[in-house]
């Protein structure tokens, strides 16, 4: 871990210990979030608290707005013309939709991993170095080498690629590409990592590797993962949030959600009765 994350980690520790109320225990806190795609009301009044250094899974049938809500957190929806977001989303108490907030800076703090592995058509090294370079995180080549190496190590990819950092990233297998994308996100020292169905394009072995990686990353990062696999949610997450038709149905400890959910819709979904 480099200094920046260490500092951030310390700071958020300080915060959580000094302020005793429940609100500050959460890393991300969303209040009355509404999202519209043109006329379509895609997210309806969602309130959720997401805890630091834990994995929160979003589940729900296809089209219920999981990706949309996830993309609100790092303001990726800004890139969609017709998309309009209302309400507050605060990270460490700071509203990301405040006009003062620069989405570019925000996205350095909140990394994202996508459904389909999307390495850039560059070398493995350049893929990882891309983020640090645009944010000016390394002054010297040796510093950049260091960042690339630690990021790849954190993503569990180092041993597989350390001899061919100059090979194209697109030449890796699907699972390796997805871990490269995770390394790429980790390289800019984010505090939060958003993952939108990161394993849906991967085979079971590659999926297992990524899940293992999520376990390890949890120690240092707040992770929000969208998944359509109940088993995956159960395996990797501590908290689970269930979405349905743009509404947040309920949110609870994963163990409780899968054994004894409060809402009938959650029960039905988990039992495979719809979606």
């Amino acid at each position: 871990m480099n200094d920046a994350t260490m500092n951030n980690a310390l700071m958020s520790n300080v915060k959580t210990t000094t302020k005793a109320d429940v609100m500050t225990e959460s890393k991300i806190s969303a209040k009355n979030v509404q999202v519209f795609y043109g006329e379509k009301h895609a997210i309806k009044d969602v309130n959720i608290e997401i805890r630091p250094r834990s994995v929160t899974a979003f589940i729900g049938p296809s089209g219920c707005g999981k990706s949309t809500f996830l993309r609100c957190i790092n303001r990726m929806n800004d890139t969609i013309d017709i998309c309009r977001v209302e309400g507050d989303i605060a990270i460490d108490g700071e509203n990301v939709y405040d006009p003062k907030v620069d989405p570019v800076q925000l996205r350095a703090k909140v990394g994202m991993v996508f459904q389909k592995p999307n390495p850039f058509p560059k070398t493995i090294y350049e893929n990882v170095a891309y983020g640090p370079r645009i944010h000016g995180l390394a002054r010297k080549k040796s510093e950049m080498d260091e960042i690339v190496a630690t990021s790849l190590q954190k993503a569990g990819l180092w041993n597989e690629v350390k001899d061919r950092l100059d090979a194209p990233g697109t030449g890796l297998s699907g699972g390796q590409q997805q871990r490269l994308c995770i390394a790429r996100a980790v390289a800019v020292s984010p505090e939060v990592i958003l993952m939108d169905e990161p394993c849906s394009a991967l085979d079971p072995i590659a999926t297992a590797k990524v899940e293992e990686l999520i376990h390890e990353l949890r120690e240092n990062y707040t992770i929000v993962i969208v998944t359509h696999s109940m088993q995956q949610a159960a395996r990797v997450s501590q908290r689970t949030a269930m979405f349905h038709l743009g509404e947040l149905v309920e949110e609870d400890d994963t163990d409780k959600m899968f054994t004894n959910p409060n809402d009938q819709r959650t029960q039905d979904y988990i039992m495979g009765r719809f979606g």
Binding site: R107, A108, F114, N118, F120, K122, I134
Partner: peptide, 26 residues
């Protein structure tokens, strides 16, 4: 592919950085 743009924006790149370093090379 849009996914490359998303990847770049997701890392906090600006639009012109994305065009220069990701889209044009591709």
């Amino acid at each position: 592919p849009q996914s490359l743009r998303d990847g770049s924006y997701g890392l906090g790149a600006t639009q012109s950085e994305t065009i220069k370093q990701v889209i044009m090379p591709a």
